[in-house]
Simulated scan of single mutants.
Amino acid sequence: MTDETLTAPDPQDEQRCGYVALVGRPNVGKSTLMNRILGLKLSIVTAKPQTTRQRISGIKTTAEGQVVYVDTPGIHRAAGRALNRHMNRVARASLQDVDVVLFLVEAGRWTNEDDHVAQALERVGVPVLLVVNKIDRVSDKSGLLAWLKEHAREDRFEHVMLVSAKSGAGVDDLEDRVTELLPFSRPLYDEDQFTDRSERFLAAELVREQLTRRLHQELPYALTVEIEEFKRDKNLLRIGAIVWVERSSQKQIVIGKGGNVLKQVGSGARAALEQLFDEKIFLRLWVKVRRDWTDSEQALRELGFDDPAG
């Protein structure tokens, strides 16, 4: 009897594993798609562009293998302030050391920003899939075919996939295609791990999501959230968060008359936190001013923004 007959093959040797970057201009549905694939709320989602500011990885483990999806800020041309430059650096750095890139665009709409992203992807040495999102909004299918013929050139993309991140249409096929392109490898993370981010980071993001949803168009870009307290006490998780703004006038808007806005934010955030962590939450929020923090590289570092170069 030979050694080969004594040794059974390891099923993990037949699995695929790798990193997949989700890129595109702001507000094309990258975070919604990752949440759909994972089957849980990981990346925050709002109707406002540039909601995602930092890289966040979502890990999906199945019998076929493990896929680490990397959600990134939207790549955009206008990058005057330090925060905008930071988001562009994060998005571009996420293209390094990945196995597949998903380039998301909006069905029937190709902008100069999409061209800007496409040009950046021409130098990527891994398969790039064009993922046409929001197909549920397109009623003119013949028009969509003509649009695809114009923009989805075969020499530019490995595959073209039509999906609706909102409804889930086409997402299973996309996942199958992604898995086929990944190398054979053992899993990088434990089977029950769903992100590489800390609980503090996730808590701050969920609070910021509620602020973004409840405040007017411009103010969300001038605020960030820092977790000051994160402590489990018997059957209660105590979270204390500071909402940083740039102006005293912005502080009053966030608090609201009689504290009503901050109370609404706290109520919504607490519900989202309890759903994510599956435990009772006691949440306290403070609003403080740090002038011009969005245009200060030092302030960004001190407030916990990752340096993709470091």
Rank of each mutant, 00 (worst) to 15 (best):
N35F: 00
E279W: 10
T224W: 10
L215T: 15
K234H: 12
G74K: 00
R36N: 05
S248A: 15
L121V: 09
M87S: 03
I59F: 01
V45A: 00
V289A: 11
Q54S: 14
T294E: 13
F157H: 12
G168P: 02
M87Q: 10
P220Q: 09
L237N: 05
D295H: 09
S249V: 07
D190W: 06
P187E: 11
P9S: 13
L38T: 04
V20N: 03
F282N: 12
A82I: 10
R89W: 00
Q193G: 05
K41A: 02
T224R: 10
H216A: 09
V117L: 07
T212L: 15
R177W: 06
V287Y: 09
E150I: 06
A241P: 07
N260A: 12
Q217Y: 13
I75Y: 04
E228H: 10
F194P: 00
P183E: 10
P11I: 09
A79D: 08
R200T: 08
G256F: 03
V132P: 13
P127T: 08
E150F: 04
K141A: 12
R290E: 13
F157T: 11
Q193D: 02
I75A: 05
R247F: 01
V23I: 14
D97E: 12
L95K: 08
A8E: 07
V28M: 04
R232F: 04
R53C: 05
K234I: 05
N88P: 05
Q275A: 14
D3R: 14
I59H: 00
K60F: 01
L145K: 15
T2A: 09
G18T: 05
G80K: 15
A21N: 03
Q193T: 14
L181K: 08
I227D: 04
A271S: 06
R197G: 01
R16E: 03
V90G: 03
R213S: 11
N235S: 14
N84Q: 15
I281N: 02
L144N: 07
S31M: 05
P183H: 11
G266P: 00
R301A: 10
G258V: 06
V45T: 07
N260I: 02
Q15M: 15
C17G: 09
L38S: 06
T294Y: 07
L145C: 04
Q210A: 13
K134N: 04
R301V: 02
G74D: 04
K288C: 12
S198M: 08
H151G: 08
R208V: 07
A118W: 01
F277P: 08
V20I: 10
A271Q: 12
T224Y: 08
I44S: 01
T195Q: 06
P183Y: 11
N112W: 03
H76C: 03
Y189H: 15
Y221I: 04
G143H: 09
E158G: 03
W293Q: 07
A204S: 15
T46H: 02
V287K: 02
S139M: 10
V117Y: 02
A146L: 14
I135A: 06
K231Q: 11
L188M: 14
D99K: 13
A93L: 10
R208E: 07
R200V: 13
